[in-house]
Design a protein around this nucleic acid. Structure first.
Length: 928
RNA sequence: GCCGGAGUGGCGGAAUGGCAGACGCGGCGGACUCAAAAUCCGUUGCCAGCAAUGGCGUGUGGGUUCAAGUCCCACCUCCGGCACCA
């Protein structure tokens, strides 16, 4: 009867832990602290996926391990519960999102508890809790109250923003407008990505190749009033501070590329009116006297270039279709052509402008600008390969040294002038050359190496008032509003005039009045227009009066990212009604020491959270410059390995490499294929190759593994252990149900090591005895302990588990199993298979919980062997092994090796050129 | 196209430049059993050989080294990301 029954012991210990608050975290750490954080899940209607427990088990093992070593452990869990899927489900079924969200959270909570994670559940939070939303809105107010001071490179209170006298002179409204234009949270009328199918505006990051990331719906660009967050102000710090964190280099690189910092220069080209030359001279003199102005004005077209050394190779200029100076630069005869081109460009989605349209398009404006160094006219074109949103929205085209300009020049038959030659002596080149080299045909700069040229010309342009060094980044300001229902309302009020229309003035909701709750809405569907659902809220919600003025609430909501930007801070002090987090608590626990989650958040979530954190840091609300000290991405778990054969229309099999779209793929059971050379083939028709690979789990493919089913069949400890045993945490790896059975077999053996299986009730096996362990047994034990102890902090769980399996394999045949061997083993098993470990600990007669027992001490003296088996090589090939005492010196090792009969035989008659001996490792005879 | 990461038995994987394949799955053989399951024991990279043993072997081709899965060069395949950012 007393077989290992996870279904009985797992709920038992889960209740025990809960009843005893075993994993409660103190308000402040006592002694050493560690903060172990999982990326909290979005509680979808499908419940937990086997991918979730992978990272969660990893951090849980570390958490349990650290607790047993006496560390104060912060290990919380919560739910990222705002967002589109809940809202869409709500729309489909007519249930309010809050209801379905709560139901989904209940499912997730049940599943997470079923897996035995040692979270401090008293800290649980959901981003949708009013008590949480309150502080998300409060942080928005902080962003709203902050401007970025470029002098100090930090965010400061808006009250400290210096107001220029001429602005102040124009009155309060002008001052307010000036401040609003400097806030980190500001409104903008810029063109946005409107997705009609989703009924919302999307951030650039949520639009992939012209369609929405979620759902793949078309996206069009329309102008709309939006809330923006000035993340670009922090671009440089977000980039530089990557040096402060221990993250995978690939993630750092991804963030760095996303920020996309580039250095170069801005250069002004004089806009030539009809009779050019004379006025260019006048402009030039004025510029030399006055210097480079902050705005180019109407007299000059400002371009951004990373290669000012190619100025002499400029053969035309290009402005984006949305460039503000386009009308000014268009000559009357070109007006129709330009208008047509602009309209076409506006209709094009980003998809058309990038992926499909590799062909360059553009139209000549009819006018020219004057080159600042040569004084010669340069024609101005309009083309959509220049983006309005990057740099100045205008470029100087150097077709000889830029691939895009090259293509454009070829397409429109524009001149190509070479001004850089490779230094490696290949000489003058007729083809595109984009590398660094040496300047040719560049006036006084001819002969200069690229880098020197850039430095020199930048200085000269600055002195002439024609240009200045400039830095740009690909990062755009963060579009922070959504036209949806299920998100945090903005704590913002729009003032209404006597006519009931907005005056343009805004005020924020006082922090003491937060949270601004979502209204009860009968109809929360998005509209056909970008008018948000909240605008259909009742008047009592929508209109408020403050200080005798009427206001209408902001009806946009925040994006899903908002809640996940700071949840790691709220976990530290989740019930605080006075502050978003107690500073004493924050200082004690931050930063997060280990953050584990999927690589899909490499850019967006992690960049946004870092940005908010830096603003909070600048404003004195948090103590660390970075939130997440160490980051690890768990790999994806794929579905079970599949073999796919192809059937032709006629019914026969087609070999995989010859299959076409007409042949239908068919799944083939594993026992009908075999490996032949490089490929798998059909067992019954070895000429027919089949594809073999594992696919991403998806409902449509039908290969999704449900954790509930795995727990039912094998138990939670088996699921935990299997996911850790599959391979390295960070690797992508296929699921194998047989593999789960494998680790279950291991847990069964652990059980039988301790429990008498033939008895009627759970009782200690008579083979467990109080004998002192033998030296051999202690060696085996401490080696296992040592491996597990070093592997856990390295997150190398698969090898730790392998070592525990070896230990169990060692113990299984023992007729008499010393308790002093088994108890430390059960202790170190506890982080991996906590339920089983608790049960075995109880069977061993020790007081629960093993989860808080001190981690065993590894005794170094048991890690050394008395004798070692040393490989002996001749010419690098293994020929024999000899056993020598562990402390044998080099000479004795060589002697022992040479004395081996087989080695002696092989060495006979050979001349030994050299003997390489690595003490304690190997001997190698190099012979001639 | 550019940037990452990875290629090791039938499968998942292990190996501070020093015995390739730990551990698990699967396979094969045995014990127990009337039998099966479960369990336990043994065996299992490929080729040749009765065997001792020998040869080959970490995607491909070169190189460095007494010694390379590991370091260097070139290439191939797969996976992930980015993609007119001047």
């Amino acid at each position: 009867m007393p077989r290992y029954q996870p279904a009985r012991i797992e709920p038992k210990w889960q209740s025990w832990w809960e009843a005893h608050d075993t994993f409660a975290t103190p308000r402040l750490p006592r002694g050493r602290k560690t903060y172990l954080l999982d990326m909290f899940p979005y509680p979808s209607g499908d419940g937990l996926h086997v991918g979730h427990p992978e990272g969660y088990t990893a951090t849980d093992i570390v958490a349990r391990f650290e607790r047993m070593r006496g560390t104060s452990v912060m290990h919380p869990m919560g739910f990222d519960a705002f967002g589109l899927p809940a809202e869409e489900h709500a729309i489909r079924t007519g249930t309010p999102p809050r209801e379905s969200t709560e139901r989904n959270i209940a499912t997730f909570r049940r599943q997470l508890k079923m897996l035995g994670f040692s979270y401090d559940w008293k800290r649980e939070l959901a981003t949708t809790d009013p008590g949480y939303v309150r502080w998300t809105q409060w942080i928005f107010l902080v962003l709203f109250d902050t401007w970025f001071d470029p002098e100090t490179g930090r965010g400061r209170p808006i009250a400290e923003l210096p107001v220029p006298p001429d602005v102040a002179a124009r009155g309060d409204a002008a001052v307010a407008a000036f401040r609003d234009s400097h806030r980190l949270a500001y409104q903008s009328e810029a063109p946005v990505n409107w997705c009609p199918a989703l009924g919302t505006v999307l951030a650039n990051e949520e639009v992939i190749g012209g369609v929405s990331e979620r759902g793949g719906h078309p996206v069009v660009r329309i102008p709309l009033r939006q809330w923006m967050l000035r993340i670009t102000a922090y671009a440089e710090r977000l980039e530089n501070d990557l040096a402060l964190v221990d993250w995978p280099t690939s993630i750092k690189k991804l963030q760095s590329d996303w920020i996309g910092r580039s250095t170069g220069a801005e250069v002004d080209f004089f806009v030539a009116p009809a009779g050019a030359a004379a006025s260019f001279d006048a402009w030039r003199h004025a510029r030399r006297a006055a210097g480079f102005p902050a705005e180019a004005g109407r007299e000059a077209l400002r371009v951004y270039t990373t290669r000012p050394d190619t100025l002499y190779g400029v053969t035309y200029l290009v402005i984006a279709p949305e460039h503000p100076m386009i009308d000014l630069l268009t000559t009357p005869d070109r007006r129709d052509a330009i208008r047509a081109y602009r309209e076409a460009a506006a209709r094009k989605s980003d998809l058309d402008r990038t992926d499909l349209a590799k062909e360059k398009t553009g139209v000549f404006t009819g006018s020219s600008c004057i080159h600042p160094l040569t004084g010669l006219p340069v024609p101005v074109w309009v083309a959509d390969y220049v983006l309005a949103t990057y740099g100045t929205g205008a470029i100087m085209a150097v077709p000889a040294h830029d691939g895009r300009d090259w293509e454009f020049a070829k397409a429109f038959d524009l001149p190509i002038v070479t001004v850089v030659e490779p230094v490696d002596g290949t000489g003058h080149t007729e083809s595109l050359f984009t590398g660094d080299g040496r300047a040719v045909a560049s006036g006084p700069y001819t002969g200069l190496p690229t880098r020197e040229f850039i430095a020199r010309v930048a200085e000269d342009l600055r002195a002439a008032g024609m240009g200045r060094p400039a830095v740009n980044s690909k990062l755009r300001d963060w579009l922070f509003s959504r036209q949806r229902f299920w998100g945090e309302p903005f704590p913002v009020l729009h003032e209404l005039g006597p006519d009931g229309r907005p005056t343009g003035a805004i005020r924020t909701v006082d922090a003491s009045e937060l949270p601004v709750r979502l209204p009860e809405l009968v109809d929360f569907r998005p509209g056909d227009t970008p008018d948000p659902p909240l605008s259909r809220a009742g008047h009592d919600w929508l209109y408020v009066e403050r200080d005798g003025k009427r206001y209408r609430r902001e009806t946009n909501t925040m994006p899903q990212w908002a809640g996940s930007c700071w949840y790691y801070l709220r976990f530290l002090d989740p019930a605080n009604g006075e502050r978003f987090v107690d500073p004493e608590v924050e200082r004690a626990w931050m930063p997060v020491d280990l953050y584990v989650g999927g690589a899909e958040h490499a850019v967006l979530h992690l960049l946004y959270a870092r940005f908010w954190h830096k603003v909070l840091h600048d404003r004195g609300h948090v103590s660390t410059p970075e939130p997440f000290a160490r980051l690890v991405n768990q790999g994806m778990i794929l579905g079970e390995m599949e073999f796919t054969g192809y059937r032709s229309v006629k019914g026969g099999w087609v070999s995989a490499e010859a299959a076409t779209a007409d042949d239908t793929p068919a799944r083939i059971p594993a026992d009908q294929v075999e490996k032949q050379g490089e490929h798998f083939v059909l067992r019954d028709a070895p000429r027919i190759r089949v594809d073999s690979r594992a696919y991403k789990m998806s409902k449509s493919r039908g290969n999704v593994v449900n954790p509930d089913a795995v727990v039912r069949e094998f138990g939670a400890d088996s699921l935990r252990l299997y996911e850790m045993f599959m391979g390295p945490l960070e690797a992508t790896k296929p699921w194998s149900t047989a593999g789960v059975g494998g680790v279950r077999g291991f847990l069964d053996r652990c059980w039988r090591l301790v429990v008498d299986e033939r008895a009627d009730d759970v009782r200690l096996s008579s083979q467990v005895v109080d004998d002192p362990p033998t030296d051999d047994q202690l060696r085996e034990l401490h080696r296992m302990l040592d491996k597990v102890t070093t592997d856990i902090p390295a997150l190398s769980f698969n090898t730790a588990i392998a070592r525990m399996m070896e230990f169990v394999n060692f113990c299984t045949p023992l007729e008499r199993r010393p308790r002093a061997l088994l108890e430390p083993f059960v202790t170190v098993l506890a982080p991996f298979a906590p339920h089983l470990a608790e049960e075995l600990w109880e069977v061993l007669g020790r007081p629960a919980p093993v989860s808080l027992v001190a981690w065993p001490i590894v005794e170094a003296r048991w890690l050394k062997d008395d004798f070692l088996e040393i490989p002996v090589q001749i010419g690098g090939k293994l020929r024999a092994r000899v056993t020598v005492p562990a402390d044998t010196d080099v000479a004795s090792m060589e002697a022992a090796a040479a004395a081996d009969p087989r080695i002696a035989e092989l060495l006979a008659g050979k001349q030994i050129v050299k003997v390489i001996t690595v003490p304690g490792r190997m001997v190698n005879f190099v012979v001639r």
